[in-house]
Design a binder for these strands. Structure first.
Length: 254
DNA sequence: AGTATCCTGGAA
DNA sequence: TTCCAGGATACT
């Protein structure tokens, strides 16, 4: 289901906020407005309204934005629409949020203006290489740094590095041109694959229609601790890098 | 660059 | 009871 198609043209008739932290702004700004379309910047979903405001949605780790469905203990916000339809925002850990911004200022919004280039939009190979050359930070940290590259999270960073055969700890500027090129292609590939499979419903994520994504059935290395490497059968190791679970085949990834 | 912090709950 | 989770930020 295309969220945009469902939302477009629908009027917001009410907003019920169960957890203030999940919807910190004044809901009056969006009441009675009609949704005109959606945009996406990195991991932020933007729902534009016809009254000059936009809703910004970030699911973080456990957020779910659902069309319909049942209200549960983790329902934080209910956005009522016409004809009894509604959007439900569930979020177990309350890290996610729905914020309001001026539509014209969305790009200037503090969070969005700081986002880096997107692999599937404007990150060219040249820009990618330039970016890596500027830092000695571990390559996985750079891939996940939203201010440098936006949209790549822990799962896709792990998988892209495995696919490209690169150790996540490698200082970014140490990657030579052809290796950086392989990584660039790998990032594009895992992201496309993630989208094709509807995302990874590993823990909490589900699609707006309540169905699960299938990328978790195609993880390359993420979550495969102690399991055989899909390429060489060596045992996958897990450690923490920048505080995040990092999976690596010590044989394939150098 | 590493660590704590915001939260909750399922698994170890 | 401790550890860990698709994220991001504010601190040493």
């Amino acid at each position: 289901m295309q969220l945009e198609k469902f939302l477009r043209g629908k009027k917001i008739t009410g907003v019920e906020i169960k957890t203030a932290k999940s919807f910190p702004d004044d809901k009056k700004k969006v009441l009675g407005a009609r949704m005109t379309g959606t945009r996406r910047f990195g991991k932020v979903l933007v729902i534009d309204l016809d009254n000059g405001y936009s809703l910004l949605v970030h699911l973080k780790l456990t957020g779910q934005l659902l069309v319909g469905g049942t209200i549960g203990p983790h329902t934080r916000v209910i956005i009522n629409l016409e004809k009894g339809q509604r959007l439900i925002f569930n979020d177990l850990r309350i890290f996610g949020w729905i914020k309001i911004a001026d539509s014209g200022q969305v790009i200037a919004d503090r969070l969005i203006s700081k986002l880096g280039l997107e692999p599937l939009k404007d990150l060219t190979l040249t820009k990618f290489k330039d970016l890596l050359a500027k830092t000695a930070r571990p390559i996985k940290i750079v891939l996940m740094d939203q201010e440098k590259i936006s949209g790549v999270g822990n799962i896709y960073a792990n998988d892209a590095l495995w696919l490209a055969g690169i150790d996540p700890r490698t200082p970014a500027r140490q990657l030579d041109g052809s290796t950086a090129g392989q990584l660039y292609e790998a990032v594009l590939e895992v992201l496309k694959k993630g989208i094709r499979y509807g995302g990874a419903s590993d823990q909490h994520y589900i699609k707006p229609d309540g169905t699960k994504g299938k990328y978790q059935e195609h993880f390359l290395v993420y979550g495969r601790e102690k399991m055989p490497c899909l390429r060489c059968k060596a045992k996958i190791e897990k450690f923490f890098l920048g505080g995040r679970g990092t999976y690596v085949c010590e044989v394939c990834q150098k």
